[in-house]
Design a binder for these strands. Structure first.
Lengths: 242, 242
DNA sequence: CAGGATTTGTGCGTATGTATA
DNA sequence: ATATACATACGCACAAATCCT
């Protein structure tokens, strides 16, 4: 069974039902599907992606698979060793900490840009995404919660007006997402909902400096979860600093 | 004449002379060559890259060309319109300003990380790259000056210890490089050498806060050059493949 | 607004290069 | 050291979409 929708079905009176929103190329469809598999954890870190197998699974040619794979490689979700194979990236503790640290710098920059531009539109959309996140924590799977969390935080980058920053974030966010999946930071966080609420409230407040501090604090919680996860083989006798 | 080196020459007693350091794939070789063409300005913004023509020019198959092209697309140097073609990206003034602004945020972050880690190794390599830049301004072409400038500034990202930041910088630096090529910021800058000297001295000094300000100042000069260029020159017409 | 030219997108067979068990 | 599995690369053919006259 083909996962990817075909375009040029030649059967007489073929139902156009499947042709909705098919402007994208097959490469993009395969890449999206693969990305979902990786980000949902169904393709564990370290797994090798064999082109021929994927090609027959998806029902597309190896060329399309190769191009989609390279798209994910350039996004940092897969790594390639020439002539050896392509594998799902496995983030170690140090890298995940670096991801969160860098994200802090970008998010502080984004909020500095958007702070004087906040208006009704911003408050409305920001609130909507926060509500969606809160709902997800109550009714959805962990994967959906992570997606909602990513979507909530992405809005700062979308709204700040720097499109280059948005592009960079869309790259980095893949690794942030993967870090959440690997470290299960969101589930293990002690008071995830309360923390998000505090972040949300401060973001709509009056004090930019306070928000910049809040961003750091918020991300340090993620880093703490990463460290706890990385050391959970041997329970830490003493907690890490802070 | 083929620009790309072939591996499996079957001619009897073919000289193994050309086999040195050939571990990279053809895809990577083509991508590097294309990137140099774009970043050196030999492929003007807006130029369409026709796969078949490139394939015969380079002496490689269309598949390899396609993969190399997509590598540059994911790096942000080319854009693709499905079924229409692939073109060298043309950065407008707003985008170039955004590039410099974001670079400021990243570079301040990098220096904050590396500041307490500066040692003899750092000073030595940093000085070497600065000297190379100074030399380039006196003896080399403009393209070489830009390369030296990029290499000089890249060291902060290499040394700061955050590998994820380095990856992000390697993406963004492509657009920084292209902005220099398009806006000719370096040549038009009033006192480029003096500015670099000041940046260099402050980076080796004692005051981090002063350095963060210096970074902003340094990049604002680039933005000023971009603005001057955008308002002086009329937008160039797009060409087709030569 | 045809319709043909151009170019990209896709598929497949095959040969070779490379890593690894 | 050999075998094997796989990635890499090539060439061709055709489909599909865009562009242009």
């Amino acid at each position: 069974m083909s996962v990817i929708q075909k375009k040029g079905v030649k059967t007489a009176h073929a139902l156009p039902k499947f042709d909705v929103a098919l402007s994208r190329t097959r490469r993009a469809q395969v890449a999206d599907t693969l990305r979902n598999f990786v980000l949902s954890g169904q393709l564990a870190p370290g797994t090798q992606l064999v082109e021929a197998k994927l090609a027959s699974r998806f029902g597309v040619s190896r060329g399309s698979i190769r191009e989609a794979i390279w798209e994910l490689i350039d996004q940092g979700l897969l790594i390639n060793r020439p002539y050896a194979g392509t594998f799902v990236i496995s983030l170690d503790e140090k890298t995940m900490i670096e991801v969160f640290s860098l994200r802090g710098a970008l998010e502080r920059y984004a909020f500095t840009l958007l702070w004087p531009k906040r208006d009704g539109v911003f408050r409305e959309e920001f609130t909507a995404r926060h509500k969606a996140l809160v709902n997800a924590t109550r009714t959805q799977t962990r994967f959906d919660v992570i997606k909602a969390e990513m979507r909530f935080h992405s809005y700062s980058y979308e709204f700040c007006g720097n499109r280059v920053l948005l592009e960079v974030w869309e790259q980095l966010s893949q690794k942030v997402h993967l870090s959440f999946v690997i470290s299960q930071a969101i589930v293990r966080g002690t008071d995830f909902l309360g923390e998000s609420e505090r972040y949300y409230t401060t973001a709509l407040g009056d004090d930019l400096a306070e928000m910049l501090v809040e961003i750091d604090r918020h991300l340090e919680l993620g880093m703490l979860a990463v460290r706890r996860f990385a050391h959970n083989a041997s329970p830490p006798a003493s907690k890490t600093t802070e």
